[in-house]
Structure formats: structure tokens, C-alpha cells
Amino acid sequence: MSSSTIVIKAPSKRRNNPIYAHASEVFLVTPGDVITEDADYMRGHGTYTNAGDEDNKLYASVAGVVERINKLVCVKALKTRYNGEVGDVVVGRIKEVQQKRWKVETNSRLDSTLQISSVNLPGGELRRRSAADELTMREYLKEGDLISAEVQQVHNDGMLSLHTRSLRYGKLGQGCCVVVSPSLIKRRKNHIHNLPCGATTILANNGYIWISITSGDACNEGDGGFNVNKEPVPLEEREVVCRLKNCIQCLAKSSVMLYDTSVLYAYESSLQYQVKEIMSEKVSLEIVNQTISLLEREKTGDG
């Protein structure tokens, strides 16, 4: 057993580190602020108008940044629950097994559903689901299991229907899950990344980030995630996964946008420290600062 010293310290003043002055083009609003009085603009998320008013004042209903895309005005809040869109990649936890579907918890306003007809059968068979399939639903996915899926449909009330009909999705095996706010996940073309350090991450749109080791076998990859590998993960690969987990948590605490580049930069900046040191305040600030400066350099390098 390694000798460890327990340190108890007084609480430090909790402050986010405002090292970079925000760009002045950014238009910040708080609830009740008037965004514009121009009637031409269409209103998007985070805005509202008063029905009874004669003038077409557009008010903000959340605190955040105003985004103008052509004639559409919306306010992006700093933290929200997940609002699903068709085609998004999500990671969810099975909450309930119902008659012909599973209820999945996805950090959104309402629980999502996964129909039995929307999953792949073992071996990739194509056939109609029978009554026997309904009874064996729990053998495939039971309460507590984590799955990766895609949003198939968004219903009127905001409920999402998921599907795992591609071999990229399915039940997730050994690894860690980190929960962050959905607004920190940058929208990209691809959300499932095989990082060069040997880990695979799924930066799901709903804020659930899954980190696991890159499985070498081609056949496992194409399995649709039915059989879960319960072999112990070797120590070096475990270290990679845990290091990534800690780095992502540091970035999320300082509200840095999460995508493959930022996660990689954070990983590289953290290599000089031990994995358990990353969670301490001093080291995590160091890592975040380094990540942001690397990202800035990349941006100015490009443009």
C-alpha cells in the first residue's frame, strides 16, 4: 500500500477564471432584455414576444448569447437540458422496460423511447419481431444499461424516439460516463472518435460523454454491441481512460466547449501530471489555460 498523506484545507474562493476578456461582438442578454424592435426578425429559442403589445419588441427569456442566423434570432443559454434534433447521437441509460419498448433517460425534458423494432437483432437478422422477442427484451437491454443511439424522430411534445439500427450504436461495454451540460458539446459531423491515445470517446449531443478503450477486434466493432466484454482492462489502457475522464471534467467545470480537438489538447497538457492530481484545483486550472491557449493558437494559425 502506498503511503498517502491526507490534506484538509480551507475552502478557496470559488471563482471562474476570466483570463480572456470576452470579444466585444458578443451580445449578452438576460431575461426580460429587449433584443430588437424590428418586426422582420423571426423568433427562435430563448425569445418571446408579448401578444398584447402593439410594437413588435422581441424579449429574451434566458441568459446567454444572442445568435443571429439570417433573419432568425435566438438566444443560446449557457446551460440547458437537451433539446433533441433528428440525427443527433445520444448516449442514454435504460430506465424502464415496457411492453414493446424501452424508456431511456437522456438528460432531456422527457424520457426518450427505444422501440423494439428500432434495435438490431443478434447476428444482424432481419425479421419481424415476435412475441418471444418481447419476453426476452430484458436479456438484451435491462435497467441501468447504457446505450448509444441516434435520434430517429422528435414528437410534438418534445419526446424523442431513438434507434440503434446501425452497427456503430448499441449497448456500451466497459468504460466511464461523464455528464456535462449539452450546451458544451460542439456540433460536429462526427461524434464518435477513436483518439490516437488508444481510447474511444462518444461526445454525445445530450451531454453524456462515454469513454472506453478502442477494441481491436473488427468483429466486436461490427457486433452492434450485443456481447459485452467483461475481461479486465489492462492498466495502461485504464490509465488513458481515467486521464481522459478527469480532463473532460476539468474542461466542463471551466465551461470550455468539448470536441475532439479540445479533449486531445487537454489530454496532452495533462501528461506531465499524475492522473489523480488532475482533479486538484491548481492543476486543473493549468490544464484548462494550456488547452485554451493551444486552441487560440490554432485559430489564429488558420485564419
Partner: peptide, 16 residues
């Protein structure tokens, strides 16, 4: 308070 909080958070948002 809200404005300060939003400014602090947004500074990291926009630089990444």
C-alpha cells in the same frame, strides 16, 4: 451578478 457570471463563462466558450 448574472451579467458577470455570463461574461466569465462566455469568455471560455468563445475562445474554444
Amino acid at each position: 451578478t448574472v451579467r458577470e457570471h455570463v461574461e466569465e463563462t462566455v469568455s471560455n466558450f468563445t475562445h474554444s
